[in-house]
Amino acid sequence: MTVDLTAVVPENSRGRGVFRYYDAADCAFFVAEPSIQPELWHRYLNGAREVYQRFGVEHALEYESVVDGRSTSLFFVALDAGGDIVAGVRIQGPYAAAQQAHALVEWAGHPGADKLTRMIDDRIPEGVVEAKGAWVARDAPNRADLSAAISRTALHAARIRGARYGFATVASFTAGRHQSCGAVPAEGIAAVPYPDERYQTVPLWWDTRSYPAFADESQRSLIQAEQQALGLPAPRPLGNPCASLRTAEDRRGYGR
């Protein structure tokens, strides 16, 4: 079923400042700045808080710090055919310095913190955005597809904001899903117990130039279709993306 955009978007959230596209699960994705679409923003936060509370990690959302929207440059929400928000994520950046990255809070006092700082600093000149507060509704029938769609937003957000790199920290058991969407684990950075000891969290990078070498073919097609729907120009041709970019030399500016 195709979502009727005019039916599911709040009256004060139609039109200006909103990017739109459909994902593989036939949900309507909306992309906006919190100040431009405040109702959608607060609906995203309410959904995030409900999911994070269910897992007992509400503190990781840092609701009081982010609710005003000033630390968020973009947010993505997925609406189903009934108009319910069933997934979302917020984006910080592009950063001017590594110290702005939330990941450094997570790695503070742990091995790898200095290396992660250098890794972010090295990429700052070409642009880094960080995905935070990702969630998917537990009862969504298409949960796996929505989770992949949320992963793809790291690439979309980077391109919308004129950055080369998307960045996120994720639970280690979800890393494979993100890798299928083009993410590469940050090499040499040990996992940390965040937001608590039940989780091992790892940092991932998405490179808007070389992700096709690492993404599954089905995900590459979806990334390209969604970016076309967002009005983003086709990325620079990569020649043979599935061979040469897998070398250690080419990974140096990606996962290393």
Rank of each mutant, 00 (worst) to 15 (best):
R161L: 15
P38G: 04
G231Q: 04
S180A: 14
I91P: 01
R236H: 06
V18N: 03
R90N: 08
A183I: 02
P94K: 13
I160N: 07
W206K: 02
S13Y: 03
Y254F: 13
Y254L: 13
Q200G: 01
A190R: 12
V192C: 05
R251P: 00
P111N: 11
Q37R: 12
G109W: 15
V66H: 14
G112W: 15
G93F: 09
G47Q: 09
A158C: 08
H42V: 01
G47L: 08
R159M: 08
A149F: 10
P237C: 07
G109N: 08
S71D: 10
A213V: 03
G188D: 06
A213S: 10
G69F: 07
Y44V: 00
G69C: 06
V184P: 01
M1K: 09
H42L: 07
A97C: 05
R152I: 01
T247Y: 12
H102W: 11
R54C: 01
L5M: 07
L155C: 06
D196C: 07
A28W: 11
A144R: 14
D250F: 15
S71F: 06
I36D: 07
Y63A: 04
T208G: 04
A248N: 10
A48M: 14
I150G: 02
Q100G: 12
V89K: 14
D250K: 13
R14A: 03
Y194W: 15
A154H: 13
L40H: 04
Y194N: 04
I120L: 15
K115I: 00
W206I: 00
L74W: 09
D23L: 05
V66W: 11
N46I: 00
Q224H: 09
D145M: 11
E130G: 02
A229K: 09
G255I: 03
V105M: 11
R70N: 11
D84V: 06
H156V: 00
A137S: 15
R138A: 12
D196H: 12
W206T: 00
A108Y: 13
F55H: 13
A113H: 15
G88D: 10
V202G: 01
F19L: 12
R159A: 09
D26M: 06
P193E: 09
L61P: 03
G162R: 07
F30Q: 05
L40I: 02
G15D: 02
R54L: 09
L74H: 10
C27W: 01
A186M: 14
F19W: 15
S35N: 04
V77P: 04
V170E: 10
A243C: 06
F29T: 00
P203F: 13
R14G: 01
A157R: 10
R123H: 05
K115M: 08
G56Y: 12
A28P: 00
T247K: 12
A113E: 14
S35P: 00
P34D: 04
S65E: 15
R70P: 00
I150M: 14
I160G: 03
R251D: 05
D122T: 01
